[in-house]
Every structure is written in structure tokens, then in C-alpha cells.
Design a protein around this nucleic acid. Structure first.
Lengths: 204, 204
DNA sequence: TAAAATTAATTAAACGTTTGTTTAATTTTA
DNA sequence: TAAAATTAAACAAACGTTTAATTAATTTTA
């Protein structure tokens, strides 16, 4: 059965997000996925390779989404609005996985995933960069620090999804009702980022 | 010798930042600190309690720094500039530790540190909130989303210090010369944040 | 098509390491 | 000499991985 393989991937995503890579044992993983322990080595070779597959499966597609956006006939600000829309949607629908990525990339040496993750992120980064620089060339956007502007965008989104406990406390939300929390505050975040970028980028 | 205790704390900060809490063994830790393995339990009781001491030792003082700033006779924008100055300085001089905090807070359940860290962060958060709301009351600042504005501030700084590999790639910096990297890009980050907050907050 | 052969999937048990912690003996300090 | 600091050794538990045996599925053969 091939779907045991994806059962493992699903369980891994959930457990790695909750307990971290090192903090998740293959036994917990196997129990959660309802498979035998040996199936992890059987399908993926090792726990580390499982993680790499997880990363490559779940990330990467975003770059194409922005590339397509860049080719469309829209004003730079409309593109920025859509970028924010896409980006928030994507991260909110993969919150757990996004936390895994952020945690692993902050491990400098040991993590075998640092380069894997960084390269994917750099790809997305370059595409967003094109969007802003195009707006500057068209004299619609100010001459802002492009790299750090992107850092502000992704940094804000990451902060919000980083710790649900902290976020709920900050945003005054009941930590239990996660679905409502998501919809309501996804829009709040989008509005804030659009407002922030409009003030920051547009020439007055 | 009491300084063996701080040797352990220093080693822990470095190793936890590099390999994570779970990824660091007490044996590595003892080797790095040049003490016997048993000294960790002797001084701290357990690896977990060592982590808690680490958190409480290194964090917390920031709140008082902002509280003092809030009491001074300055324009809201000058206060914001100083806040950015302080915040960037503090995080850049404790980059490694900041990475530890961010990683552990993103672990939901297992981490016994989540609440410890969150409470400290919430304290700082409340103080920054006062600063912005005061600026709004004085009709100098726009009616922006206060909570998410703070998320943008701290989110941007966190992103930059999160992964030195990624940051260097993005900012086009040689990853080796870390000291130069720090000074040069600390100022770049400050300038960006001041510019961003000016555009975002000030009523035109 | 039925039987045989082969490959793939799955399992329980055991592998050797490594984990964090503790012990009991020894050295250092005051 | 009594207390504190330090050590090497051992502890049980948990770790990721491998093994060898078994069942299920697929392919080949007659």
C-alpha cells in the first residue's frame, strides 16, 4: 500500500512541527502513522531522508506562483496585494510545516536540511525581488531596501504563525477555536501587510 | 569554582543555538564547557532546568529599557527610533540566544519553556504597545494595527538573525567575516526599520 | 488459466549506541 | 576535618536502524 508512505509523511509533518525533528522519535512517528517502525527506513531510508522528502514535497511550488504573477498585466501595487494574498494563504494553510522549516533553518551546522531549505527560500526570494524592482523601475515604488522589505513581509507572517500560544495572547483570541482564529486573523494580517506596503512603497 | 557554572551556561547558549535543545547532548555540553558531565546535574539539577535558567538570565531586562524610554520627554517618532536602536542592538548582541528562543517557542506542547519564554516576550510586547498607542493619542501616529505593527518590527529583526547562511546569501555578504557583517548590516537594518515605521506610522 | 516463482510489503524482535542522570569515591577548599 | 567540588564509572531508558521471518501482491512459466 502506497498510502502508508503518505501516512508517514503526514504524521511526520505534524510531529516535527509539534516536537521538532530531534524531539520526535521514530517510534512516536510509527505509532501516529499506524505503521511498523521499520516502514520508515523501508520507505525513506532514514529519519533524515524522510525529512528531506517532506521539505521538497511541501515547498517549492510557491516560486512558480509568483513567477506567473510577475508576468501578468497589473500595476506593481496590485501585484504586491496579490503577492500578500498568496503568501499569507500559503503559509496559513501549512502553518505546522512552516514552523518546521523555520526551526530547522535556524540550526546552523548540524541540520542537514539547512541548505535544502535555504535554496528553496532563495528561489522564492528572487522572484519577489523582481516584483519590487519592477515597481521601482516603473517609478511607482520608492527606492526602498528591497531585501529587507521582503524580510519584513515574510518576517511578519512568520511571527504570527510561529507560536499559536503567543499569537493568541497578543491578538486577544481564544486559543481553542483555531479555525475561527485562522479565518479572522488571516484577513487582519493581509490588511495590515497591504497597508504597510502601500505606505512603505508608494511614492506620495 | 562558581565560574564553572557560567562556563556551562555559555556553552549551553552556544550549543543550543547551533544544534537545538534536543540536538545537544550533555556530553557535548560538558566537553565544550570543559567540565565533568555530572556538573550539569550538580549545578542545575537537569538539562531542562539549565535551559530555564538560561532563558531567565538572558531575557527580561529589555522591558525595563522600554519602560524607561516611555517615560522620557521625546516625540513618539523619536521614541520609535530609539526603540528600534535598542531592539536591534539587543538582538544582534545575543543572536545565538535569540535563535534559541525563537526555536523553542515554536514548539507547541512538549517544550517546557514555551510559557517561560512567552511570558517574557509578552511583557516586552505590552511596553512597546504603550509607546505606539501614546503616539496615536497624541495624533502623531496613524490608526494602524498596533499588534501587527509590533509583529512586523520584531519579525523583521528575527528574520535577519534567524539563519546566517540565508541572510548572507540574501544580503550578498561573505558568510565568514561575521564581525563586519554584523556592524554593517545592523545599521542597514536600523535604517530600514526607521524608514518603514516612519512611512507606516506618521500622519502625512 | 492454474501453478510456480519472484518481488514487494509488513512484522516482531533484537541490534549496538547514545541519551540524561546518579552513584560512590576522591580531591579540593575553607 | 568538615563541607564543597569534582571525578570516573555505571545506570536504565530511549534512540535510530537492521535483521530475519512472514504475508501479500505481482509476474512468469507451462
Amino acid at each position: 500500500m502506497i498510502d502508508k508512505r503518505s501516512h508517514i509523511l503526514d504524521a511526520a509533518e505534524e510531529l516535527f512541527a509539534e516536537y521538532g525533528f530531534e524531539g520526535t522519535s521514530v517510534r512516536e512517528l510509527a505509532r501516529k502513522a499506524k505503521v511498523n517502525i521499520a516502514m520508515i527506513s523501508y520507505y525513506f531510508g532514514s529519519k533524515e531522508q524522510l525529512m528531506k522528502v517532506l521539505i521538497q514535497n511541501r515547498a517549492g511550488a510557491f516560486r512558480e506562483q509568483i513567477a506567473t504573477l510577475n508576468k501578468e498585466q497589473l500595476t506593481p501595487m496590485d501585484k504586491m496585494d496579490l503577492l500578500i494574498e498568496y503568501w499569507v494563504e500559503r503559509i496559513f494553510s501549512n502553518q505546522q510545516f512552516h514552523r518546521v522549516l523555520n526551526r530547522e533553518i535556524s540550526l546552523q551546522q548540524r541540520s542537514a536540511f539547512n541548505k535544502t531549505i535555504s535554496d528553496i527560500m532563495l528561489g522564492n526570494f528572487e522572484e519577489v525581488k523582481k516584483l519590487i524592482i519592477d515597481g521601482q523601475k516603473k517609478r511607482v515604488f520608492r527606492k526602498v531596501d528591497v531585501e529587507l522589505t521582503i524580510a519584513s513581509l515574510i518576517g511578519t507572517i512568520s511571527k504570527v504563525v510561529q507560536s499559536s500560544y503567543l499569537s493568541c495572547k497578543i491578538l486577544n483570541v481564544d486559543p481553542d477555536k483555531n479555525s475561527i482564529f485562522n479565518e479572522k486573523h488571516k484577513n487582519r494580517l493581509k490588511l495590515h501587510l497591504k497597508d504597510l506596503m502601500r505606505a512603505h512603497l508608494l511614492i506620495k
